[in-house]
């Protein structure tokens, strides 16, 4: 009700209807070698295991989709329960289920007809990451996102991505096997995410993505056991937003490559927070579950409104403003 009132009472209120036309292109971002029409992407692991689903997210207003993290071989993931709601978000331990890069090529083909696709990959060593990334490039990915941060798959993700030395060597191995931009997705389950960011930059990453989920556990009091079959998992959703914003703020201050913000974004104000903290673009995951795919359109419209209210001509003008 309050926001409705402000919209109507706003001196420029009459213009709001034409805003869409005026603002066409205002949401466009360029970062590194990429240009996206809209700054919000679908985060890896949410509704992005199949081509049709990824296409739906782009049509719903995502500027790009990041695929489910894909490995060399088909993997069923952990046994159920793999997911549960908690206050402020979700805890999941899907366990990196995926059909393997071979079969995923078909899904990529379908998704790419709708718009840009960033290929997320996971491996247990630098060579696997390099091979998978090269395959993603062949499939038509506009960039590759290295999952160095999944908190619940033994031998993968954060288990290797918590060590700056590994981050650096994996990024640089991938760098030498592809021409498309390489992004490193970082874990917040570390004493210094900035150190991981520096390692990624040293290795040649063109962007860092922060954050993946926070390691977490849920126990049933009556049944006296951890709920997830993997026992622990990763927390996502609104509860982790302040953690993500802090990570982006610090990374922006320490690195010269762009930062992509992710964690708990479910409306335009959350997205603006990340941009003002220093993110050049952002990703939305859990909110696609709570609000549905329409969340992308809502965020886009809200950002346009915010930009015109506050006199921003482009997303780039907002990036890092809260740091000044």
């Amino acid at each position: 009700m309050i926001s409705l009132f402000i919209t109507l009472a706003h001196p420029k209120g009459v213009l709001l209807r034409d805003l869409h036309a005026v603002a066409m292109g205002r949401l466009e971002i360029t970062f590194g070698r990429l240009r996206l029409e809209r700054p919000g992407m679908l985060a890896s692991g949410i509704m992005d295991e199949t081509g049709d689903s990824m296409a739906r997210m782009i049509k719903s207003g995502a500027g790009a989709v990041v695929t489910k993290s894909i490995g060399l071989e088909p993997r069923p993931g952990h046994r159920n329960p793999t997911f549960t709601e908690v206050e402020g978000g979700y805890v999941n331990a899907m366990g990196l289920p995926n059909p393997g890069i071979e079969l995923f090529a078909e899904e990529m083909e379908i998704a790419l007809r709708a718009g840009p696709v960033v290929g997320s990959v996971f491996g247990s060593n630098a060579k696997d990451f390099a091979v998978l990334s090269a395959r993603m490039e062949d499939c038509g990915a506009c960039a590759v996102e290295l999952n160095l941060s999944c908190p619940h798959a033994e031998g993968y993700g954060a288990e290797i991505g918590s060590d700056p030395k590994n981050v650096r060597s994996i990024v640089s191995a991938v760098k030498s096997s592809v021409d498309i931009p390489v992004w490193a997705k970082l874990t917040p389950n570390t004493s210094s995410i900035v150190e991981l960011g520096r390692a990624a930059e040293d290795g040649g990453a063109e962007a860092v993505v922060a954050i993946n989920t926070l390691k977490a556990m849920v126990i049933s009091a009556e049944l006296r056991k951890p709920v997830l079959s993997n026992r622990f998992g990763g927390l996502s959703g609104p509860a982790i937003k302040p953690v993500g914003v802090r990570a982006v703020y610090d990374l922006r201050g320490a690195l010269s490559i762009p930062v992509v913000g992710v964690g708990g974004i479910s409306n335009w104000r959350d997205a603006a927070e990340y941009l003002l903290a220093g993110a050049s673009a952002f990703q939305v995951g859990s909110a696609v579950g709570t609000k549905g795919p329409k969340v992308f359109g809502e965020i886009n419209r809200g950002l346009e409104m915010f930009m015109s209210d506050h006199g921003y001509g482009s997303i780039a003008e907002m990036v890092g403003v809260a740091r000044e």
Binding site: G45, I46, D48, E49, G77, N80, T82, F83, G289
Partner: peptide, 10 residues
């Protein structure tokens, strides 16, 4: 079904 909540995409 895994998540049941429209999140995982399986």
């Amino acid at each position: 079904m895994k998540c049941g909540a429209g999140v995982c995409g399986c």
